[in-house]
Design a protein around this nucleic acid. Structure first.
Length: 132
RNA sequence: GAUGCAGGCCGUCUUAUCGCGUUUCGAUUAUUCGAAAUGAGGAAAGUCCGGACAACGCAGAGCACCGUACUUCCUAACGGGAAGGUCCUGGUAAAUUAUCGGGAACAGCCAGUGCCACAGAAAAUAUACCGCCUGCUGUUUCUUUAUGAACGGGAGGUAAGGGUGAAAUGGUGGGGUAAGAGCCCACCGGUCGGGGAGUGAUUUCCGGCGCAUGGUAAACCUUACGGGUUGAAAGACCAAAUAGGUUCUGCUUUUUUGCUCAGGCAAAAAAAGGGCUGCUCGUCCAAUUUCCACUUGUGGAAGAGUAGAAUGGGUAGGUCGAUGGAUCCGAGUGGCGACACUCGGACAAGAUAAAUGAUAAGAAUCUCACUUCUGGUGGGAUACAGAAUCCGGCUUACAGGUCUGCAUCUUUU
């Protein structure tokens, strides 16, 4: 790949969905689908620089903060490494608010999450194309 | 050397690639890029105590409520810690002492009230079931015909003995007695008074008192001491858009007709500006009121409507609070110690739907299996756990390593 078109695997603060109002809107009005062990909520809005993501792991399934953090960090890492799949479609003039909710019971390993996240992002990409 | 117990300390490391938070610097510019530095714990946990800090409240005293409870000390404070005392208890020596540990909700039940299951005669102003003893009396039998013996009845005296119970009215021994009893005596225990030691809990010595009056205060209660309430979602500040409030300025608040003595009433048209679609047209909504002056249709004031500007409160959001402190490290001095003081040095996370990570390779440690056994090969494991305003404690969790002390066993000298 050329230097200009080089994929950057960054993931900064601005790509996290962090405003309470936006999160509320996403959970009230967003569409959803399941890809085990994840539930995905998404809501399109006019294009901005980034998609906005939030990762959620239930406190009920993982009582200890260490486990919750570990799962969230692994999911975030997978998203960071694979988000180019979704960003290819940015000329569609749409961005998404996305919530990725882990509903499994055990702590999964990296490779397993990675595969699932790729599937999720491909599906979102398709949805994006359909809407535009 | 091994095992056990107690206490202290540590609690994986290295490299590569890709990332994240904060700070500084440099670009670019109005949000990005680059570089450098830095970035979880001994418990960050439980949120059980105590403080700092903040807001609110507050004349003083008492009651109520809550907490604490051997003593002295440490501390900002504590329900924490240190040292000491008393009682209970384990080991060792050994013989009721010494030493090394462990435990105690360790103030007060002759201030008052309550409660004490079952069993037992009796569980609290003591009591007589069995037993023991002494009179009286009935029967039987023997007999020396006085009386004695056995078996009953009833009266009295007995807390020695039995039995019950978690607990039975000081214990052991002796005297004493009809039988018994602190009735008397010795020792032990208790209690009261005094002297000595100690800051004190307490201890020790001497003397008096035979010393009826249980247990329970994680029962009410009494005594002493302490406690204002709410918590960082506290609290302080900045503040977009929209809709209100206030102030200033501009514009509009008009005309005609009819009825009426007048006050006024009715009708028609117009109307600043606004809505419906960005413009035009069209359509709809729209204050149109009151007072004063005179030259009697003009002027002025207030009110109403509307446009613009300024401004106050305040929402989303943001900043501070918020990381330099009862701080950490080292040395010295004082103290048995907890700890205090002095000097020198160091700044060491600051997130906010919440950074401190992921992947790969290797190393280290432990462990299991196999083996050709100074070792090698392969597999597995590397705990408990993630800052959230900050400190001091307590409690709980924890693979493995390491140090110190004590005990036991073994080996060598």
């Amino acid at each position: 790949m050329t230097h200009a078109g080089r994929i950057r695997f960054t993931f900064s603060k601005n790509e996290i969905l962090r405003k309470k109002k936006d999160i509320k809107e996403l959970f009230e009005n967003g569409s959803s689908f399941f890809i085990h062990p994840f539930k995905v909520l998404y809501l399109p809005y006019p294009a901005e620089k980034h998609h906005k993501v939030i990762f959620t792991v239930s406190r009920r399934t993982f009582k200890r903060a260490v486990d919750r953090n570990l799962v969230k960090r692994r999911i975030r890492e997978c998203y960071r490494l694979n988000k180019y799949i979704l960003q290819d479609n940015r000329q569609a003039k749409l961005s998404f608010s996305i919530a990725i909710i882990y509903i499994g019971k055990n702590v999964p390993d990296f490779a397993y999450i990675n595969g699932k996240i790729i599937v999720i992002l491909k599906k979102l990409s398709e949805i994006s194309q359909k809407i535009s």
